[in-house]
């Protein structure tokens, strides 16, 4: 049940983009065509899950034993600095590995990877998952929930991206008043979508 609740929560109630307002640059920048939006969403899913796993491991085995007792505040500060380091390196490594070993995947995802190196949705999810599951009883349990949470959040990201790109593709053909064409109407749409997603607030299943 906790699993279903987590899914609903990550995808709808606290959607990365529309409720937490993380990762807005790709949301506005790469949502002009559905194809690009899908590619971006897949790349984000890939990177968020991987980054969350790597950062959780770093926190569990290095930062937590060193700072939990002596300086818990410093641990939080170090999260931000070390996680961005981990994520940037990881994305670079993955990009290189993909280009070398899986060229077809690189061709479809590769151009989006550098864009998400320092994306706030990726860093945000890494920080949030460590905050939420850093106090788990065992490493296995912690990383399981981390992976699920990160994956579902990335799905939520994808849902928002696909909805937005669908709307914007149709908007291109609409008779929009001249001063509202392009970005303005896209921002209005994004705002309305965020409003709509607020309606999911308080949704829960048995939990």
């Amino acid at each position: 049940m906790r699993f279903v609740q987590l899914f609903i929560n990550a995808v709808f109630v606290s959607n990365v983009i529309l409720a937490m307002f993380l990762g807005l640059c790709p949301f506005m920048g790469v949502s002009k065509k559905s194809r690009d939006a899908l590619g971006m969403s897949c790349a984000v899913l890939f990177v968020i899950v991987m980054a969350a796993a790597a950062t959780f491991t770093l926190d569990w085995f290095v930062l937590k034993p060193l700072f939990l007792a002596s300086a818990p505040d410093l641990r939080v500060v170090l999260h931000t600095i070390s996680f961005i380091l981990v994520i940037a390196t990881l994305v670079q490594l993955v990009e290189m590995a993909l280009r070398k070993y899986v060229p077809p995947l690189y061709k479809s995802l590769g151009i989006y990877l550098p864009l998400i190196t320092t994306n706030c949705a990726v860093l945000g999810m890494a920080l949030l998952t460590v905050k939420r599951y850093g106090g788990s009883e065992s490493f296995a349990e912690g990383i399981l929930w981390t992976l699920c949470d990160a994956g579902f959040s990335a799905l939520g990201f994808g849902v928002a991206m696909m909805l937005m790109s669908g709307i914007r593709e149709r908007l291109d053909l609409m008779d929009v008043p001249e001063p509202m064409r392009g970005w303005p109407i896209a921002f209005v749409c994004a705002g309305l979508m965020a409003f709509a997603f607020m309606g999911f607030n308080g949704l829960s299943f048995g939990g």
Partner: peptide, 8 residues
């Protein structure tokens, strides 16, 4: 702790 942080 600060030394640890810098070292890490």
């Amino acid at each position: 702790a600060i030394i640890y942080a810098a070292a890490i």
